[in-house]
Design a protein around this nucleic acid. Structure first.
Length: 363
DNA sequence: TCTACTAACACGTTTGAACCGC
DNA sequence: AGCGGTTCAAACGTGTTAGTAG
């Protein structure tokens, strides 16, 4: 199987986990008949992502959690309308490097630091029937990024100055219980959604692009009140006529219309669908090329048997201390059939928690 | 000195409860 | 009583900035 650099790290990690599981007699591979959900996906706000990508996307991470902008919005198609599916977002480390902003450009600066384990998020609408996923854009706008390794709020824990690429996973709900064992899943990623996590913006052009497109940052647009107030008053009381004079470009509605969505509301059925966006849901120039498809070869650990929410990979696996993990020796046997979890799956129900445990009705 | 990080801040947006009229 | 629209304040999200640590 061909594997790009972006996923090599993940591959190594999962192989480590598989190896550890096999030492505990827990190895399980997906059956040859296991099929990933047949579906396709498109990046809806690809235009905006590409504008950031051309410059070098940066995402602020804070201790308390910061939303992504642009957020990931995709449309799914080809799903069985009546079948239940879970949709997940994963942030894969791209390469094994640390990056550094120097001389007006990003350059590699040594090897990657050990990564925090939590990098997988279940979409809050999961599980939902195929018609729900195909009728509404799937948005991860509520996702927050943090550099707090002790985070307990379900945010994505990333490392500053490292590059990541979001990846969307689609899993049949009936397979969710066995997800960790390599349940068949479709996986999609988009090159233009790569970004570098930072604690403060490095590239001024990224800052400007964010301000121009993010409704929450309207106050910082050149024609905005606040910027004038904050930056034009000199200590001597005079008014600094800096570049904002000529920079008083129209604080256009054009800029506003560039924002990824008219509203940041959820795509949940309880909220107005994102289809309400003033921009057409799918227009030709707004569609990304077909995404990379990753065949589900890489097994996951079973979240049922993990003492932590799904996506919280056992700590220190990268450091090779996996075998010291306390849960290794106590794991129950793997399910006999990946399509048929050991216990009858709980009826699918709408949840708000991002943990598979909640999804399965545990706790 | 430089780099990376944090917290406080001001401003705009979102959200939901309260209110009103039909 | 129920519904739909409006108003308003609190909560939230944003980039900026000054200060701190290594």
């Amino acid at each position: 199987m061909m594997m790009d650099q972006a996923h090599f790290g993940e591959y190594l990690l999962r192989q480590q986990m598989l190896h550890a599981a096999s030492l505990s007699g827990l190895q399980h591979r997906v059956g040859a008949d296991a099929e990933p959900p047949a579906c396709e996906t498109r990046l809806l706000n690809g235009d905006l992502w590409r504008r950031f990508h051309d410059i070098g996307t940066e995402m602020i991470i804070t201790k308390g959690g910061r939303r992504m902008f642009p957020s990931l919005r995709v449309s799914l198609s080809g799903l069985d309308p009546r079948e239940e599916y879970c949709v997940l977002l994963e942030l894969s480390l791209v390469g094994r490097r640390r990056w550094r902003w120097a001389g007006g450009a990003w350059t590699a600066a040594g090897g990657a630091e050990p990564q925090s384990p939590r990098r997988l998020m279940l979409h809050p609408d999961s599980p939902a029937p195929g018609h729900h996923w195909t009728a509404n854009p799937v948005s991860f706008s509520k996702l927050k990024l943090t550099n707090n390794t002790m985070d307990a709020q379900g945010h994505m824990v990333l490392t500053s100055m490292h590059k990541y690429r979001p990846r969307v996973l689609v899993v049949r709900a009936r397979d969710a219980a066995a997800l960790a064992w390599g349940a068949p899943h479709a996986s999609f990623s988009f090159a233009e959604t790569e970004f570098i996590a930072v604690t403060a913006y490095q590239n001024d052009r990224i800052t400007k692009l964010k301000i121009d497109n993010n409704p929450f940052a309207k106050g910082f647009r050149a024609c905005g009140q606040s910027k004038c107030k904050r930056k034009t008053v000199e200590p001597d009381g005079s008014t600094e006529q800096n570049d904002t004079t000529d920079a008083k470009r129209p604080c256009s509605d054009a800029a506003s219309s560039c924002s990824e969505e008219g509203s940041l509301r959820s795509s949940s059925p309880r909220s107005p669908p994102l289809i309400d966006s003033p921009a057409p849901l799918v227009v030709s120039e707004n569609i990304s090329p077909p995404p990379t498809f990753y065949h589900p070869e890489l097994p996951y650990m079973n979240p049922l048997h993990m003492p932590m929410p799904l996506g919280m990979w056992p700590a220190n696996t990268l450091a090779g201390s996996f075998l010291s993990s306390p849960w290794g020796a106590t794991l129950p046997p793997p399910p006999a059939n990946i399509r048929s979890p050991p216990t009858a799956p709980a009826p699918c129900r709408r949840i708000k928690s991002f943990t598979i445990s909640a999804l399965l009705g545990e706790g």
